[in-house]
Design a protein around this nucleic acid. Structure first.
Length: 507
RNA sequence: GGCGCGUUGGUCAAUCGUCUCAGACGCCUCCCUUUCACGGAGGAAUGACGGGUUCGACUCCCGUACGUGCUACCA
């Protein structure tokens, strides 16, 4: 008796894919997989003014990177193709006509100027911001006030027109949202939304309803910003005669920036964190926005942190694989309040995934970041470096920050940290230690440390006095793994050179 | 302005009427480490406000405040 679960994500190709968008996809995906259903990607490319070339491919690539590939999409096709709204124009036209015929929609011929005029002149004490609605529609140029002959004439002359829904008076539209319960709206406060634009394209309102119906969508997930227009959609489901097949509504809470406002590109700029899944450059404005991928996030970590923004499982565990997320996901545990995105915690998630990542694959992921610094990478060597420093890395680029001294001598040496306490004795000690290198039978962490300790005793030097200088000499600063391990890694020649170079600087 | 939605530590959050309000991030202290980090042990920090309902309310209801979203031929 229950229908097969089918969910959809319907982005408009007008820019990058931000956190909220990816989370909507993710919840769609988790819900579909959990219930053995299908996930459909439909593209809303009906906004010609804001349409941006390349944005659709970009979105598809983001979904690929996240590992959330749809079962049906414009790219893959499927039983309900086409999945691009611009290719379904005729379908929407047909249903718009049906609505006009049944008296639930009408032609409106008003120009932009006339609408503007209405908004200014119909403004009154009890109607401070006039909309195109039951109060004003009879004053406008539409098929409700015009005679049939007048309308036909306008149509025949090719006068531009839009189709608007005729919102009923004195009704209450009640809809059930899966995470908010019943939400009701007074139709007297709704305006006659445009259903078909003058260019023949449908607006979102008509398109979602028609597509959701035709594509057998059972659960409609979207952002909370859609809640105010949901009653219009319910009305459309009713007027089109499909009310019994209306999907379950799920209005997801908004993701906010640190200032508590709906997350936007602005936040990324002012707080210095990505808000798009992948790098996005707006070809029109030539505006670049950084992505989580390029910032060095692992897709699994990205998905994980996003899933926990507005939802949590009943066990309180936080590090969850996609399989675990699917298993644990419960739409009723999704919060109804917005969540503020915390970049610090996001980095912590990535750190966790870095630690449990397999070193071989991690090495492959780190490699481009090292090569980008002009280093010729030896995979086996890099693998060792990765294993040695991964615990102090949050994001992929950190591997270079934290491990560059494994590949080249430090450009800057933190001389002030040791200069004050530098003595002739210390210099002698390092010079004689370096001199022992040629006679060492084995170049290893253990033998290096042993030789170092023996020499210290001979010369009456305390370990605390020379260990830090050695570190500074080899890595340039107070960071990194064990010094002798580093010396072993970089080899006899580099170790010797770095120590000698540093001694020269300290004199 | 109108309408919708929301409100547990700085942030993510548990709790589905009995709470001395989990856990995580971040922050602080200590231990480990003669670096940094990891790890370990502690710590500070929370139910917007006012009314009800109830033996009992963070949990239910109402109001207020605050926040946020929508209010386009954009989605």
């Amino acid at each position: 008796m229950s229908k097969k679960v089918r969910v959809r994500f319907a982005p408009s190709p007008t820019g990058g894919l931000h956190l909220g968008g990816v989370r909507t996809v993710l919840y769609n995906y988790l819900f579909a997989r959990k219930h053995g259903g299908e996930f459909v990607l439909r593209v809303e490319d009906t906004d010609q003014k804001r349409f941006v070339a390349g944005a659709e491919d970009y979105i598809v690539n983001c979904l690929k990177w996240c590992g959330l590939e749809p079962d049906e999409s414009p790219e893959k096709g499927g039983p309900f193709a086409p999945y691009r709204q611009s290719e379904r124009k005729a379908i929407y036209q047909q249903y718009a006509q049906q609505l006009i015929a049944s008296g639930h929609a009408y032609y409106a011929f008003d120009t932009a100027e006339e609408l503007e005029h209405m908004r200014i002149h119909l403004k009154s004490e009890n109607n401070p911001s006039p909309q195109y609605d039951r109060y004003t529609r009879m004053h406008m140029k539409n098929s409700l006030g015009l005679t049939k002959a007048e309308v036909d004439e306008l149509l025949q002359k090719g006068t531009p027109y839009v189709v608007r829904i005729k919102v009923p008076e004195n009704e209450t539209v009640v809809l059930t949202d899966m995470i908010r319960g019943e939400v009701s709206f007074d139709t007297n406060l709704l305006d006659d939304k445009v259903l078909m634009k003058a260019d023949g394209m449908p607006t979102y309102h008509l398109a979602v309803v028609v597509d959701d119906h035709l594509m057998h969508i059972t659960h409609a997930f979207r952002g909370e910003e859609w809640l105010p227009s949901a009653p219009v959609h319910v009305l459309l489901w009713k007027y089109l005669g499909w009310i019994n097949d209306m999907p379950q509504w799920v209005h997801l809470p908004l993701i906010m920036g640190p200032d508590g406002k709906k997350l936007s590109k602005r936040h990324g700029n002012t707080y210095g964190f990505p808000i798009f899944a992948m790098n996005w450059t707006d070809p029109v404005k030539n505006e670049f926005t950084e992505g989580f991928k390029e910032r060095g996030f692992l897709p699994e970590a990205f998905i994980n942190l996003l899933a926990l923004l507005g939802w949590s499982n009943d066990k309180g565990t936080e590090i969850l694989s996609l399989e675990e997320l699917i298993h644990d996901f419960d739409i009723h545990r999704v919060h109804s309040s917005g969540a503020i995105f915390d970049f610090e915690k996001a980095k912590w998630f990535n750190h966790q995934y870095l630690q449990k990542a397999d070193n071989t694959t991690l090495t492959l992921q780190v490699k481009p970041y090292i090569e980008a610094q002009g280093i010729k990478v030896n995979d086996a060597y890099l693998a060792k470096v990765v294993a040695l420093i991964k615990e102090r890395c949050m994001l992929l680029p950190d591997f270079w920050e934290q491990g560059q001294f494994f590949f080249k001598a430090p450009q800057t040496i933190d001389v002030p940290a040791i200069k004050d306490k530098w003595t002739v004795e210390k210099q002698t000690f390092f010079e004689s230690w370096v001199a022992t290198f040629h006679s060492m039978s084995e170049w290893s962490q253990a033998s290096l440390e042993q030789g170092f300790n023996e020499l210290m005793q001979q010369q009456g030097i305390k370990k605390g006095d020379v260990l830090l200088p050695l570190r500074i000499m080899l890595v340039g600063g107070k960071f990194g793994p064990g010094v002798f391990h580093i010396a072993e890694m970089i080899g006899k020649e580099d170790t010797t050179q770095r120590i000698r170079a540093a001694i020269a600087l300290l004199q």
